[in-house]
C-alpha cells in the first residue's frame, strides 16, 4: 500500500521506479520519458518505431537517466504481453504503466471502414486492457502501481468525424475506473484527457489540412487559455499521477486541455 509522506522530494519524484511508457519513441511519450528519467525512474521505452525508441533512450541517458527500448506494436496482444515480460526480465518489477500510444483516424461513422475501426479499437482500447491485465499482477506483487491511461477531450465530448476514436477513448474512461475500483489500494489508475496538443502527430495532420494556419488560429480562440498544449504540459500531469504526490487519487480524469472541458 502506498503510504503518504510529507517529505516528498519534488525534484526527484520517481526514485528507482520502473516506468513503462508506450509510444515513447516520439512526441508526448518521449517528453514524458525524459521527465520521468530526470526524476529518477528507470524508463522502458516502448514503440514500434525502433529508431525513435533508441533516440529516446539516448536522450534519457544523456540527461543522466536510465532507460531501455522495447519493440512492440501494442495493437497486437502477444506484443503487449511481451513488452511487460521484457520489463520484468530486465528490472524484476513494474511500478508505472503509462499507456500513451494511440492512433487517430478521422472519418464520420458511415465512412469508417471495418479495418480502421478494428485498428483504432485495438490500439486505443484493447491494447490498454491487455497491458493492464499483464502488468497488474506484477504491480500487486511489487506492492505498488500507478496506471496512467491516455483518453482525450474526444472521449468526453462528441466531435464530427471521430466515431471510432471517440468510442475507444470513452471506453477507456470506464476501463480505468473499473481498475481503480478493483485493484485499490495497491494499484491506482487514472486518466489524462488531453485537448489539442502541439505534437509531431498533430503537425502531421495539420500538414494535410488546407488553410492550416487559419485552422490553428481558430482552434486557439476556442481554447479558454488561448494556446495549444505542449507535450511538457501533459508530461507534468503524468509525473504527478505516476508519483506519490497523487497517492490518494485513483479513478480520476485529469483533463489537460486549457479549460476546454469546462465548457461541457
Amino acid at each position: 500500500m502506498t503510504t503518504p509522506t510529507a517529505e516528498l522530494d519534488y525534484e526527484r519524484l520517481l526514485p528507482g521506479r520502473v516506468a513503462l511508457i508506450t509510444g515513447s519513441g516520439s512526441g508526448q511519450g518521449r517528453a514524458t520519458a525524459q521527465l520521468f528519467g530526470r526524476h529518477g525512474a528507470r524508463v522502458v521505452v516502448v514503440d514500434f518505431n525502433d529508431v525513435g525508441a533508441h533516440e529516446t533512450v539516448k536522450m534519457v541517458e544523456e540527461a543522466g537517466g536510465e532507460a531501455f527500448a522495447v519493440h512492440a506494436d501494442v495493437s497486437v496482444l502477444a506484443e503487449c504481453e511481451a513488452m511487460i515480460e521484457a520489463t520484468i526480465d530486465r528490472y524484476g518489477r513494474l511500478d508505472i504503466l503509462y499507456n500513451n500510444a494511440a492512433v487517430q483516424m478521422s472519418g464520420r461513422l458511415v465512412d469508417c471502414t471495418e479495418e480502421d475501426w478494428d485498428l483504432t479499437i485495438a490500439t486505443n482500447l484493447s491494447a490498454i486492457f491487455w497491458a493492464c491485465r499483464a502488468g497488474i499482477p506484477h504491480m500487486l506483487e511489487g506492492g505498488r502501481g500507478s496506471i496512467i491511461n491516455t483518453s482525450s477531450t474526444l472521449g468526453i465530448i462528441g466531435s464530427e468525424g471521430y466515431a471510432a476514436y471517440g468510442a475507444a477513448k470513452a471506453g477507456l474512461l470506464a476501463l480505468t475506473k473499473q481498475i481503480a475500483a478493483e485493484f485499490g489500494p495497491t494499484v491506482r489508475a487514472n486518466v489524462i484527457a488531453p485537448g489539442s496538443i502541439d505534437t509531431p502527430r498533430f503537425r502531421k495532420v495539420l500538414d494535410k489540412t488546407p488553410g492550416a494556419d487559419q485552422f490553428v488560429e481558430g482552434l486557439k480562440r476556442s481554447i479558454p487559455m488561448r494556446r495549444l498544449g505542449e507535450a511538457d504540459d501533459i508530461a507534468a500531469i503524468a509525473l504527478f499521477l505516476a508519483s506519490d504526490m497523487s497517492s490518494y487519487i485513483t479513478g480520476a480524469v485529469m483533463p489537460g486541455d486549457g479549460g476546454m472541458a469546462a465548457f461541457r
Binding site: 485537448g195 479558454p224 487559455m225 498544449g229 505542449e230 504540459d233 501533459i234 507534468a236 500531469i237 509525473l239 504527478f240 487519487i249 480520476a252 485529469m254 483533463p255 489537460g256 486541455d257 486549457g258 479549460g259 472541458a261 469546462a262
Partner: peptide, 10 residues
C-alpha cells in the same frame, strides 16, 4: 506543473 489544467474538478 499544472500550467495547462484549468476548469477541472479533481
Amino acid at each position: 506543473a499544472s500550467s495547462y489544467l484549468s476548469g477541472v474538478v479533481i
